[in-house]
Simulated scan of single mutants.
Amino acid sequence: MMLWPAVTLLGFLVLTALVIAMGTQSTARYEQEKRAAQPASSGRPSAAEAVGAVRA
């Protein structure tokens, strides 16, 4: 009687973990590519720094 709700819950948790793992890996790859594509710091302030934006 309680077998199918337990299987459904377990499947949901496994799929949720899979989605989180894939999203984490994709985000890490995106951040790495973004950092590699940025030019080296040339001493010029960025647009945010030029307007006086505050960094935390």
Score class of each variant (00 low, 15 high):
Leu10Met: 03
Ala50Leu: 12
Leu9Ser: 01
Val19Ile: 13
Thr24Ala: 15
Pro45Met: 11
Ser41Ile: 08
Ala21Thr: 04
Ala53Lys: 06
Arg55Gln: 07
Gln25Glu: 13
Ile20Ser: 01
Arg44Lys: 11
Leu13His: 02
Arg44Thr: 03
Ala37Phe: 09
Leu10Gly: 03
Arg35Cys: 04
Gln25Asn: 12
Leu18Gln: 00
Gly23Glu: 00
Gly23Ala: 12
Trp4Arg: 07
Pro39Phe: 04
Ser41Phe: 15
Gln38Gly: 04
Ala50Phe: 02
Val14Ala: 12
Thr27Cys: 08
Ala36Asn: 15
Met1Phe: 06
Ala50Ile: 06
Ala48Lys: 07
Pro5Tyr: 07
Leu15Gln: 01
Ala48Asp: 14
Ala21Gln: 06
Gln38Ser: 11
Met1Thr: 06
Gly11Pro: 05
Arg55Pro: 02
Glu49Ala: 13
Ser46Cys: 06
Ala37Gly: 13
Leu13Ser: 07
Ala21Met: 08
Leu3Gly: 05
Val7Thr: 06
Ser26Pro: 03
Pro5Trp: 00
Ser46Ile: 02
Thr27Trp: 15
Val14Trp: 07
Val7Ile: 14
Phe12Asp: 01
Met22Val: 12
Pro39Glu: 04
Glu49Pro: 03
Trp4Pro: 00
Ala28Ser: 14
Ala48Trp: 11
Ser26Lys: 14
Leu9Ile: 07
Phe12Cys: 07
Gln32Glu: 13
Ile20Met: 09
Phe12Arg: 00
Ser41Tyr: 15
Gly43Glu: 13
Arg44Ser: 05
Thr24Met: 12
Ser41Trp: 15
Pro39Asn: 04
Arg29Lys: 14
Lys34Ala: 14
